[in-house]
Write a protein that binds this DNA or RNA. Structure first.
Length: 613
DNA sequence: TTTAGGG
DNA sequence: CCCTAAA
């Protein structure tokens, strides 16, 4: 049985005793600010880490010039570092010097198991600045909501000239880490646009973003990278997608990812390490680049929730508010994988967890001054979001439970590691579940299992009433929300299958075409039916057609009152039954090549001969 | 890869 | 629609 509690990396990182000490200059800053501004403290540590990461990255780039910089060079460095720590693990706090000479402290703990906490996914530097019409507030009409808002991620977003930040903070038995979404989310209007805009599926082949976004390549040859947000998917196809499409008559790139398809590319770097208990553990470290904007305000927003973002004010332009969301923090994900797990398996595991999380629906939250704005009716200006306000107070969050606030007790068991690597994952989520206390016993968790536990936690500082009651705060942290633990399954599903295809009801026209084709070809040649009548319908596979025929036959067999969905003309249903009967009688015979192109079939004559409808 | 069926 | 055993 494993219990997880929400532990915000931000606050945790500096509130717990076993935290490595940062350089003096940084510590001072932390001390001075930690009380009222953890972000600053974070910032400090982050900067250091970023610096180190940047160094490492640079080195990796120069030496390998590949996207695997972190797997090689960097990884080794981390390995050394870990080793060093091991030798001196009696000292809870320790400052180390990286190979690059930067003196930084890498949060490490001996008392760790194989768990890891994914605090957030970060989007790369935002290229997708979206503009939206300003609220026509009576008094603000003249000025409108002006100014560009650069929404930065939460605490994890630190300025780093090095371009990268390695953020690692272990907590108790887990490792907190940040994961970065390879693609920005475009915001337009009140909602995230998807799938056109919310494209978190850049399973691309690009190896880097900008000039130093190195990505770790997983075992499946997948490279994750950032891509610009466009209103429609381009012709670009990732290997993975091509693979999928290939087996389904695909000819275009119209892969339907659904709204929250989460083939999330993860950019992360981690190292292995062992716990003092002898369990294999690993540490996952995220590296992300950041871009400093001259007039960027300091992070103010910190909801400690699923996600958050800070905002910085940019030069004014027009009467609109432009938001550039750099990242969203997602519910924490607890991961536990064996040390022998591969990077690829880890990625798949995290991705799957995210997919599961997203499949449950997500919603966006807006924070102003750290306070959650729940009234969707209010205008931005009324909410305090305007050019006249400090836009750095604006933040966004991603929360699970788009529609149903219930937990997402999904448990995917997946041989994430195709090989024999015993890896499985389980997702727990208490989210806004009022029954968060119904912690399911998950005593089946095995050591070599991997566990992902998404959380929903939000520090509704000023609004302890609304959602908090549905929470089951834990002793340690008030804002913590208990989670429902779901037993691990033995056989997780493939990541690609985490999200089923969107439902696409057949139109009458399609049914007509299908019936026509079946009348001519029979019911055992779906590939031919596909080719003949749905050649260009990439989303209709022969299996789909076969299934549709199946349902059509059923539909035709039941009373009209029992039918649902768009009504199919009785005429067509009659033909369905006739063809069904006919082909049932003539199976082997015409199944072969020369399908009965009986011109009379449609009139029923040819079918009359041995068809009992 | 397709078919054929159960889920 | 998904998942798969079979062919």
């Amino acid at each position: 049985m494993v219990f997880k509690r929400k532990l915000d990396c931000v606050s945790v990182a500096f509130d717990y005793p076993n935290i490595p000490r940062a350089p003096r200059s940084c510590r001072r800053k932390v001390q001075n600010k930690r009380t009222d501004d953890n972000d600053d403290a974070q910032m400090c540590a982050m900067d250091l880490l970023a610096s180190l990461a940047g160094k490492i990255l640079e080195e990796g780039q120069s030496s390998s010039a590949s996207s695997n910089a972190f797997e090689g060079n960097a990884h080794e460095n981390f390995g050394k570092e870990v080793k060093t720590e091991r030798e001196d693990h009696d000292k809870p706090l320790k400052s180390e010097s990286s190979d690059q000479g930067n003196s930084v402290s890498m949060p490490t703990y001996e008392n760790t198991s194989d768990k890891c906490v994914v605090n957030s996914f970060l989007f790369p530097d935002n290229d997708g600045i979206l503009e939206r019409t300003p609220p026509m507030s009576d008094h603000k009409k003249i000025h409108g909501e002006t100014g560009d808002v650069n929404v930065n991620p939460g605490f994890e977003q630190r300025e780093a000239t090095g371009g990268l930040t390695a953020n690692t903070c272990n907590l108790e038995d887990k490792t907190a880490l940040d994961v970065q979404f390879p693609k920005p989310v475009c915001v337009d209007g009140d909602d995230l646009k998807s799938p056109s805009c919310v494209n978190m599926i850049p399973n691309g082949s690009l190896a880097r973003h900008g000039n130093h976004t190195n990505l770790v390549r997983d075992d499946d040859e997948k490279l994750y990278s950032s891509r610009k947000c466009s209103n429609k998917f381009t012709s670009y196809k990732s290997p993975a997608i091509r693979r999928i499409r290939k087996s389904k008559y695909s000819k275009q790139v119209s892969k339907d990812f659904g709204h929250y398809r989460a083939d999330v590319g993860i950019k992360a770097l981690y190292r292995k390490r062992k716990s003092c208990y002898g369990y294999n553990t690993w540490k996952h470290e995220t590296i992300y680049k950041r871009r400093r904007s001259p007039d960027r305000s300091s992070v103010v927003t910190s909801d400690g929730g699923l996600s958050n973002g800070s905002v910085s004010k940019l030069p004014e332009k027009r009467k609109s508010v432009k938001l550039s969301i750099k990242s969203f923090r997602i519910p924490e994900l607890f991961i536990e994988v064996p040390e022998t797990a591969t990077v690829g398996s880890l990625k798949r595991t995290v991705m799957e967890a995210v997919s599961v999380l997203l499949s449950g629906g997500i919603r966006v939250g807006v924070l102003v001054h750290g306070k959650k704005v729940r009234d969707d009716k209010r205008t931005l200006s009324q909410t305090g979001i305007s050019s006249e306000e400090n836009l750095s107070n604006l933040g966004f969050t991603l929360e699970p439970g788009g529609t149903s606030n219930g937990p997402i007790p999904l448990c995917s068991k997946d041989p994430v590691v195709p090989t024999t690597e015993p890896t499985s994952l389980c997702e727990r989520s208490a989210a806004a579940s009022p029954n968060a206390d119904d912690v399911i016993n998950s005593g089946s968790i095995v050591d070599n299992k991997l566990e992902l536990v998404p959380y929903q936690s939000e520090i509704s500082v000023d609004e302890p009433s609304s959602d908090s009651r549905a929470l089951v705060p834990l002793p340690a942290l008030e804002e913590v929300k208990a989670l429902a633990i779901v037993p691990l399954n033995q056989k997780p599903k493939r990541t690609e299958l985490a999200q089923r295809r969107a439902r696409r009801p057949f139109s009458v026209t399609e049914v007509e075409a299908l019936v026509q084709a079946v009348e001519e070809l029979g019911t055992g040649r779906w590939r031919d039916v596909k080719l003949r009548a749905f050649e260009n319908a990439d989303h209709r596979t022969y299996v789909d057609l076969k299934d549709k025929w199946k349902t059509l036959v059923h539909t035709a067999s039941i009373s009209p009152q029992q039918r649902r969905g768009e009504p199919v003309p009785q005429e067509l249903l009659d033909r369905v039954l006739k063809a069904y009967g006919y082909w049932s009688q003539h199976q082997g015979k015409h199944q072969a090549r020369g399908a009965p192109k009986d011109p009379d079939m449609n009139r029923g004559r040819a079918l009359d001969s041995g068809v009992s409808v």
